[in-house]
Deep mutational scan, measured.
Amino acid sequence: MLYVKVKTEDGEELVLEVEGMTEDEIREELAKAGFKIEEIEVYEVEP
């Protein structure tokens, strides 16, 4: 499983499960949803 931890400019932290997306695609999708991203951390969790 691939997850991203996202910190927004307003200090909110989100953890999202993503599969088959690049970091650029993740940033693009979050921007479309109205999030202003300060930091993204991508990590993989073994089942």
Score class of each variant (00 low, 15 high):
Leu2Asp: 02
Leu2Met: 12
Leu2Arg: 14
Leu2His: 13
Tyr3Ser: 05
Tyr3Phe: 10
Tyr3Met: 08
Tyr3Ile: 14
Val4Ser: 00
Val4Gly: 00
Val4Cys: 02
Val4Lys: 00
Val4Trp: 03
Lys5Val: 09
Lys5Thr: 06
Lys5Arg: 07
Lys5Met: 05
Lys5Cys: 06
Lys5Leu: 07
Val6Gln: 00
Val6Met: 04
Val6Ile: 12
Val6Leu: 09
Val6Lys: 00
Lys7Cys: 06
Lys7Ile: 12
Lys7Glu: 04
Lys7Thr: 13
Lys7Pro: 04
Lys7Tyr: 11
Thr8Phe: 14
Thr8Tyr: 09
Glu9Pro: 13
Glu9Ile: 14
Glu9Gln: 12
Asp10Glu: 10
Asp10Trp: 11
Asp10Leu: 07
Asp10Pro: 01
Asp10Gln: 11
Gly11Met: 01
Gly11Pro: 00
Glu12His: 12
Glu12Ser: 12
Glu12Asp: 09
Leu14Ala: 03
Leu14Phe: 14
Leu14Asn: 02
Leu14Thr: 04
Leu14Val: 07
Leu14Ile: 12
Leu14Trp: 11
Val15Asn: 05
Val15Asp: 04
Val15His: 08
Leu16His: 02
Leu16Asn: 00
Leu16Pro: 00
Glu17Val: 15
Glu17His: 13
Glu17Pro: 06
Glu17Phe: 15
Glu17Gly: 07
Val18Arg: 07
Val18Asn: 01
Val18Gln: 01
Glu19Asn: 11
Glu19Trp: 15
Glu19Leu: 13
Glu19Gly: 12
Glu19Thr: 15
Glu19Gln: 14
Gly20Ile: 06
Gly20Asn: 10
Gly20Glu: 03
Met21Gly: 07
Met21Tyr: 12
Met21Pro: 02
Met21Ile: 08
Met21His: 06
Met21Glu: 04
Met21Arg: 14
Thr22Glu: 04
Thr22His: 03
Glu23Phe: 14
Glu23Gln: 06
Glu23Cys: 13
Glu23Pro: 12
Glu23Tyr: 14
Asp24Trp: 12
Asp24Ser: 12
Glu25Met: 07
Glu25Asn: 05
Glu25Arg: 06
Ile26Pro: 00
Ile26Met: 03
Ile26Asn: 00
Ile26Glu: 00
Ile26His: 00
Ile26Arg: 00
Arg27Lys: 10
Arg27Val: 07
Arg27Trp: 08
Arg27Gly: 02
Arg27Tyr: 08
Arg27Pro: 00
Glu28Tyr: 10
Glu28Thr: 11
Glu28Ile: 09
Glu28Trp: 08
Glu29Asp: 04
Glu29Arg: 08
Glu29Met: 15
Glu29Ile: 15
Glu29Ser: 10
Glu29Pro: 00
Leu30Cys: 06
Leu30Asp: 00
Leu30Met: 06
Leu30Gly: 01
Leu30Thr: 01
Leu30Val: 03
Ala31Cys: 13
Ala31Lys: 08
Ala31Asp: 04
Ala31Gly: 09
Lys32Asn: 07
Lys32Arg: 09
Lys32Met: 06
Ala33Ile: 11
Ala33Ser: 07
Ala33Asn: 07
Ala33Lys: 14
Gly34Arg: 00
Phe35Cys: 05
Phe35Ile: 11
Phe35Asp: 00
Phe35Val: 06
Lys36His: 08
Lys36Arg: 10
Lys36Gly: 04
Lys36Phe: 07
Ile37Asp: 08
Ile37Met: 08
Ile37Ala: 07
Glu38Trp: 14
Glu38Met: 15
Glu38Asn: 12
Glu38Phe: 13
Glu39Gly: 07
Glu39Ala: 13
Glu39His: 13
Glu39Phe: 13
Ile40Asp: 01
Ile40Val: 06
Glu41Asn: 08
Glu41Leu: 13
Glu41Gly: 06
Glu41Tyr: 15
Val42Ile: 15
Val42Pro: 05
Tyr43Lys: 06
Tyr43Asn: 04
Tyr43Val: 07
Tyr43Gln: 04
Tyr43Glu: 03
Glu44Asp: 10
Glu44Ala: 13
Glu44Cys: 11
Val45Ala: 08
Glu46Phe: 13
Glu46Lys: 11
Glu46Tyr: 15
Glu46Asn: 13
Glu46Val: 13
Pro47Gln: 09
Pro47Thr: 11
